[in-house]
């Protein structure tokens, strides 16, 4: 044996951070090894927004003579974040199915790093997603009319939504059997992203659907960033629509408070 194999001695807190970073490093390597993955993952939001803007766009009248493209682009941003939890869930099931999770669990690493590494890695991935999708929006003709700070804050709100959904993704990913059943999660993701103000103002939907849409966390984020970008908002007079800024923060905090502990618990219970 040529290499000294004595593990480094550092504090538990040090390893919690260092191991999480190693896990994030692994995810970053994915982007280097498979740069096209990001386009596949963004395929759905991109295609659907192109459909809405160019195919249905001419028939879309959101009132007040507002520009539909300027309305739909922030919707696409929010939708990309909303669908993001599918990526998290899928990556989590894949690791579980391939036995990689068990390998991590049998190693003397910080146990928290498997979950926290996934969380921060996916957040970084989401920032990359946003960069790509914002570039596409700029090409289509979307512009932010808000100040630099308002614009950055809006992107911050988007990442906050994605951050909250990571824990739902991990929770669901650890709960399903294999990657095949993970595909069924699309049935949850689709209405969650669509019954919202992403493409159409809730006021244009039938009563109960509109009610759901106004309370959807995705709507709160979409409306809040439209306000910050100075894009057409098209909101009604309901309380959630009038308080989108508050809800765009409150919803993610609430979701994180519920699902972060649930995800951690489910991870710990893998040993049952």
């Amino acid at each position: 044996m040529t290499t000294d194999l004595q593990p480094l001695r550092r504090s538990t807190a040090y390893w919690a951070v260092a191991d999480a970073w190693s896990m994030v490093w692994r995810q970053l390597l994915y982007y280097v090894r498979q740069p096209t993955t990001i386009l596949w993952q963004l395929g759905f939001p991109i295609v659907s927004v192109l459909l809405f803007v160019y195919v249905f766009g001419s028939a879309m009248d959101i009132g007040g003579g507002a520009d539909y493209t300027a309305f739909a682009m922030p919707g696409m941003f929010a939708m990309t974040m909303a669908f993001g939890f599918m990526n998290t869930a899928y990556a989590v099931v894949l690791d579980k199915e391939k036995g990689v999770t068990d390998r991590f669990r049998s190693m003397p690493m910080a146990p928290s790093a498997v979950v926290s590494g996934r969380g921060f890695g996916d957040l970084l991935g989401a920032a990359l997603d946003l960069l790509v999708i914002a570039a596409i929006a700029l090409v289509i003709g979307w512009r932010s009319q808000g100040s630099l700070w308002e614009t950055l804050y809006a992107f911050g709100l988007l990442l906050l939504l994605r951050f909250a959904l990571i824990w739902i993704g991990i929770y669901l990913g650890l709960g399903v059997k294999n990657t095949e059943t993970a595909g069924n999660l699309f049935a949850v993701a689709f209405p969650f992203a669509m019954i919202s103000s992403v493409f159409t103002p809730p006021s244009m939907m039938p009563g109960w659907l509109g009610f759901l849409a106004t309370w959807n966390p995705v709507s709160a984020t979409a409306t809040a960033i439209r306000e910050l970008f100075g894009n057409p908002v098209a909101v009604g007079s309901s309380w959630p629509e009038q308080n989108a800024q508050l809800l765009a923060v409150l919803w993610p905090v609430l979701i994180t408070a519920v699902f972060l502990p649930l995800a951690v618990r489910r991870y710990q219970r893998l040993s049952r």
């Binding site: 191991d19 692994r26 994915y30 090894r33 391939k98 036995g99 990689v100 390998r103 003397p108 690493m109």
Partner: peptide, 30 residues
């Protein structure tokens, strides 16, 4: 301990070298 289960539990996207480096870091070798 070391464990090798019935199915090779390695990351399919990474290279062989990257896999071993990742696990080495997680074994706290630096």
């Amino acid at each position: 301990i070391g464990l090798a289960g019935q199915y090779a539990a390695v990351d399919e996207v990474l290279t062989g070298r990257q896999n071993l480096e990742l696990f080495g870091r997680l074994f706290h070798l630096g």
